[in-house]
């Protein structure tokens, strides 16, 4: 299974690559959308701010290429952390910015509901699946995954919210629409459960 990790200058590429290799994938990192022809899976990693990330994607033409691959060719896509947020229609970090629009929704800042909740949301927290999904095969409901973020994805349609996490009330920690998927947490840093999720992603049809 060949996995293309999109390099737009701001991802934690090494960790994502290493984790996918561990999951059994053949990984290549690319900053050129024309390499996508060989890919069976697309991964959009992300560390950074929404606005700058979208600019970087547009500069190389990744925005159009990702949409084409996901919508027309049905290539499974996994967005991680900021990469998940970029799947939305609109981001608000660094000013309102149009996202990839692959999953209807907006990305807004987490707002604490009590004084003990600090932002960014950093650390291990539970992921509660909203229903069965092949991405979650073999992973127990409520397993802890590793988060580090200040913004969160608010999907427009409830059915695109695949999992939620209890913080700031609760927020959507996994989104999905067809084979376009995104996790707010970092599966590549979430030890065994994270590795299992990546393996599941490789199996998605």
């Amino acid at each position: 299974m060949s996995v293309l990790i999109i390099d737009y200058g701001m991802g934690n590429l090494a960790s994502v690559r290493r984790a996918f290799e561990e999951a059994g994938a053949h990984v290549f990192i690319s900053n050129d959308p024309s390499d996508m022809a060989d890919a069976e899976r697309l991964v959009l990693p992300g560390v950074g701010a929404f606005h700058d990330a979208m600019e970087a994607l547009r500069e190389k033409g990744w925005d159009k290429a990702i949409k084409q691959a996901a919508l027309k060719d049905g290539l499974p896509v996994l967005g991680i952390c900021l990469g998940m947020q970029l799947l939305a229609e609109m981001g608000t970090e660094g000013g309102e910015t149009q996202g990839l629009g692959l999953i209807p929704g907006r990305v807004i800042r987490l707002e604490p509901v009590h004084g003990k909740e600090r932002i960014p949301h950093v650390g291990w927290n539970e992921v509660h699946f909203q229903g069965p999904h092949s991405l979650f095969d073999g992973i127990e409901k409520g397993t802890d995954f590793y988060f580090v973020h200040s913004y969160h994805f608010v999907p427009h349609d409830k059915e695109n919210a695949l999992a939620i996490t209890p913080y700031c009330g609760s927020f959507v920690s996994v989104v999905g629409r067809g084979t376009v998927l995104g996790t707010q947490f970092h599966p590549e840093k979430s030890s065994k459960a994270g590795l299992r999720l990546l393996k599941n992603f490789l199996k998605i049809k």
Binding site: M10, V47, G48, A49, D52, L82, E93, G94, P120, S150
Partner: peptide
């Protein structure tokens, strides 16, 4: 750094 890479890192 916060603007470029996000506060979270």
């Amino acid at each position: 750094a916060a603007k470029r890479f996000g506060s979270q890192c």
